[in-house]
């Protein structure tokens, strides 16, 4: 109803055009947004903590300190020696968090990335080519959706020797279905659009249509699912750890720190809140950066920063 959008002045002469579109680079524009900058810094801190854990961690993450527990055997609250306090076995929480970041980031990025990749591959193939291939792929997706994900993960993890990479693969294998569903729906509606018909009449091959025209339009969806998936996968890993089929103790991950310590939730709330806050921060940071990226990469959103 806003009839007078500045870019659509119908009466203008054919040659007259709106303001110039080319601005600063994507990274520069990302940094220009306060929230995105905050998210970017938070991601940097998490990644930095994980990579440099050997240098940054004040203690060995697996060492149980004699003075890490009170006389009654309770964890130590945050203090000058143990900055974030100690866990139920008297291990330093800060060190465990830093090392746990390695596990959680691998799960959140690799497992989630793999899930996103499989989901996109299945969804795009089924949505674009349809026919028998599409039907078979989507019925398989439905089957996977109907199957309890946790049960499947437990089965898979029980079959293979649990290790970090196996856990990542298992998580990817149960988490791709939602992405596939959403991508399928979007691809099949995109494939019906006039501009795809226009590409076909130009003689464009499938590869060109898929990679140059369909994928860019799926990008916003993929960014949203990718960032949402980070928190889901980190928590799924925690669940698996809790059930004993995830990352094996004593290797820390943010998820299993919470689960190990949840019995102490009332007496020592920091043991749950601090790693919980770390997961929240990571998910939030990726969401903020993802949101900003989505807007920046969409040419129709320019000038609305």
């Amino acid at each position: 109803m806003t009839a007078a959008a500045p870019s659509a002045t119908q009466g203008a002469t054919p040659g007259a055009i709106g303001p110039a579109p080319r601005g600063p680079s994507v990274l520069r524009r990302l940094m220009g947004r306060k929230l995105a900058l905050f998210g970017f810094l938070a991601i940097l801190i998490c990644v930095g903590g994980a990579v440099f854990a050997d240098w940054l961690a004040p203690f060995d993450p697996d060492e149980q300190f004699f003075d890490g527990l009170t006389i009654e055997g309770a964890p130590m609250p945050p203090g000058p020696v143990y900055w974030f306090g100690t866990d139920l076995l008297g291990r330093d929480l800060l060190s465990r968090l830093l090392y746990g970041a390695q596990t959680s980031l691998i799960i959140g990025l690799v497992a989630n990335g793999a899930a996103l990749f499989i989901g996109t591959l299945v969804g795009v193939t089924a949505g674009y080519f349809r026919g028998i291939t599409g039907t078979v792929l989507m019925r398989f997706t439905d089957l996977m959706m109907a199957f309890p994900a946790l049960l499947l993960a437990i089965c898979l993890a029980a079959i293979f020797q649990p290790s970090l990479w196996i856990v990542a693969l298992v998580i990817a294998f149960v988490n791709w279905v939602q992405t596939a569903r959403v991508v399928y729906t979007q691809t099949s509606s995109l494939a019906e659009r006039d501009f795809i018909a226009a590409e076909k009449t130009l003689g464009a091959g499938h590869g060109r249509i898929l990679f140059r025209h369909i994928l860019p339009h799926l990008l916003p969806t993929l960014i949203v699912w990718g960032t949402l998936g980070i928190s889901t996968t980190v928590l799924l890993e925690a669940t698996l750890s809790f059930l004993g089929v995830g990352v094996q103790p004593p290797t820390p991950s943010w998820g299993n720190i919470i689960f190990e310590n949840q019995t102490w939730f009332q007496a020592a709330p920091w043991l749950v809140f601090i790693p919980g806050a770390a997961i929240l921060l990571l998910a939030l940071a990726f969401n903020l950066v993802g949101d900003a990226l989505r807007d920046i990469l969409d040419p129709t959103q320019q000038g609305r920063d």
């Binding site: 870019s7 119908q10 709106g18 579109p21």
Partner: peptide, 18 residues
């Protein structure tokens, strides 16, 4: 009948006729 400057712009920046 379009300006060469249109090269680097996106379709939504044009009117229906353009």
């Amino acid at each position: 009948g379009l300006q060469v400057a249109a090269f680097n712009r996106y379709p939504h920046q044009f009117s229906g006729g353009q």
